[in-house]
Design a protein around this nucleic acid. Structure first.
Lengths: 138, 138
DNA sequence: ATGGGTGCAAAACATTTGCAAAAGT
DNA sequence: ACTTTTGCAAATGTTTTGCACCCAT
């Protein structure tokens, strides 16, 4: 059985081809596509999937913790099939979002948030904005 | 002369009451209001300012580096009158975004991005999501 | 005087909703 | 059989645009 099907079951969601495909897509790809791009990619295999389903599915996956939403900016929101928190590199030119899986998140900020502000920190996001190697040359 | 007027001049923008008020608002407040909230706040002093002006002005200020856009999530985008990069605490319950000005940004990630991925890092954002002290009690 | 800025209304775009039919358990 | 999910179309919400008038320099 595909790992996506196991994952869907594990959060008590019904297994449908659409869901399996969307989850598979996000878990495989190094990209963090937005709603529209996910739709276009899914359309290649399932030509009748509607945009509304993509919206509903991504929201659901996010709630269930299967994926994470990556808001690099107001106009660039992507979805990451890896729900673990890891830094993201965002190229301002080509807009690609790259994972930087190495290195744990710094815990000192979470500790400071807790000690100084009484915050109960649940998750973190670190974005590094700049130019990727490719785009520096052009 | 108000510091906002100096700032506007320093980036060669004409000084208008609308711009002065918007910039002042963002620099004073601890909040990081979104487009709509900025509009409502400005409306109290200048009842005829249009939403379109708010959009145009915020975009312009961002380009000029007078403010920074803070995208805590796809549905929560705010504007911060302090363009320096500092960690942000985001309460998932009350949606408030709090600055955490203390502590420099970790440079190790930027260095790693540069060394391993050839990135030229221009800026960073760190978000800590959780519950603020207030919201933990309710 | 003139170039840039503003407000309005319309256009474009993005997201959400309700519902009937289809599919999963 | 029962419930959930899907796709459609409409509704809603958000952001952008073009343009005439106004204002800061």
């Amino acid at each position: 059985m595909q790992p996506e099907q196991k994952l869907l079951r594990s959060v008590s969601l019904k297994v449908t081809p659409q869901r399996t495909a969307i989850l598979h897509l996000l878990r495989e790809s190094r990209e963090h596509p937005g709603v529209d791009k996910v739709h276009r990619m899914i359309l290649q295999k399932y030509p009748s999937v509607s945009l509304a389903t993509i919206y509903k599915t991504l929201e659901l996956f996010k709630e269930k913790g299967l994926i994470q939403e990556v808001a690099a900016s107001a106009r660039q929101v992507g979805y990451d099939g890896n729900p673990e928190f890891h830094p993201h590199l965002v190229c301002k030119s080509c807009k690609e979002i790259l994972d930087m899986p190495e290195g744990d998140f710094p815990q000192e900020y979470a500790r400071e948030a807790s000690e100084k502000y009484g915050y109960q920190v649940k998750s973190q996001q670190l974005f590094l904005y700049g130019l990727c190697a490719e785009c520096q040359e052009h």
